[in-house]
């Protein structure tokens, strides 16, 4: 596989994953806030701040609701918007066109055309739910084509490594963003029950609410949710599970390496092992620290992966 094509595939995976998280987060935050129990603190500004924080936008001047929705959704000038991420995913798929299946390419191309032709007016008035849901549905289709129409070899593994690295990055951002919200609410002196609404929202932000219910069969609280999203091996978007994914797919493409702590395989393995043998008690007082450490490590692994396999 050409290094340049591998680079395209890796970034295609990252952008697809990123667009999905942005859309899901925005959707969940926006709609759950409509009937939130703590209406006073949970006003529209609060929601918008949260959405912008997730999209990494800190310098907006005018912040009417429409401005914010446009900025994170359909603003092609904003490189972090959903439309930009989908465009970049498609651009990378295009560059790797001959290395992926026709089915996958067509799925991504159709996805892209649906997004760029989505009417801005509709999006800003009645279509926000439909639009974000469409992103999630299209992502599922694309993911299905990745699993179903590519040989489970190099190309496939590289796309998935991109997706899993991005997943760790985004899930950490989502948790951070929500911890941030809860912190504000705590300061305002609200009760634990009222906080549980926030933990439910966090689970929904990573589509893990039903799974969590099934696993714990109780009302979610902070420690339970963090345990689930960080450590649960069976939860598809937990950090622990995602790290295992990266390790699994990196092994698929790895060629024999010396036993050396500087290799990528070693670094991923160590991080993954750390999560395997961690309990909530180990970090419940230092969540930020663990999240920051993980974020730092995963970015380091990402850039070394790029250097080793993707540079041309």
């Amino acid at each position: 596989m050409l290094s340049r094509v591998a680079n395209n595939l890796y970034w295609m995976g990252r952008y697809i994953e990123r667009a999905e998280h942005f859309a899901r987060y925005s959707k969940v935050i926006y709609f759950s806030a409509l009937d939130a129990p703590i209406l006073k603190t949970y006003d529209r500004d609060f929601v918008q701040e949260s959405m912008l924080y997730m999209a990494g936008i800190f310098d907006m001047e005018s912040k009417t609701e429409k401005d914010v929705l446009f900025k994170i959704g359909l603003d092609a000038q904003n490189s972090n918007s959903i439309i930009s991420n989908v465009s970049m995913a498609r651009e990378n798929a295009h560059g790797a066109r001959s290395a992926i299946s026709t089915e996958l390419w067509e799925a991504i191309n159709r996805y892209y055309h649906l997004v760029i032709s989505y009417p801005v007016d509709t999006y800003l008035t009645t279509g926000f739910y439909e639009f974000t849901q469409m992103i999630l549905d299209q992502t599922s289709i694309v993911r299905g084509k990745i699993y179903g129409t590519l040989l489970h070899e190099g190309e496939w593994a590289i796309i998935l490594i991109g997706m899993y690295i991005e997943r760790v990055v985004q899930v950490i951002r989502i948790i951070n963003s929500k911890l941030n919200d809860v912190f504000k609410i705590e300061q305002a002196g609200h009760s634990v029950t009222e906080q549980s609404f926030e933990w439910t929202t966090l689970l929904k932000c990573v589509e893990a609410f039903d799974m969590n219910r099934k696993h714990y069969a109780s009302i979610p609280d902070k420690n339970q949710v963090l345990e689930f999203l960080l450590l649960n091996q069976s939860c598809p978007r937990s950090i622990s599970n995602s790290l295992s994914g990266i390790m699994r797919y990196e092994e698929k493409i790895r060629i024999s390496e010396k036993r050396d702590s500087e290799t990528i395989g070693f670094k991923i393995g160590k991080l993954q092992q750390k999560y395997q043998y961690l309990t909530i008690d180990d970090f419940k007082d230092n969540v930020y620290e663990l999240l920051n450490y993980t974020q730092e490590k995963i970015l380091e692994i990402g850039s070394e992966f790029e250097k080793k396999y993707l540079s041309y």
Partner: peptide, 21 residues
């Protein structure tokens, strides 16, 4: 493979493509 010029290089009069390996 579909390659671009930047994926290829020439050394000692042989042409190579840059792959992940």
């Amino acid at each position: 493979p579909l390659v671009e010029g930047r994926d290829l290089f020439v050394e000692k009069n042989f042409v190579y493509m840059k792959t992940i390996y």
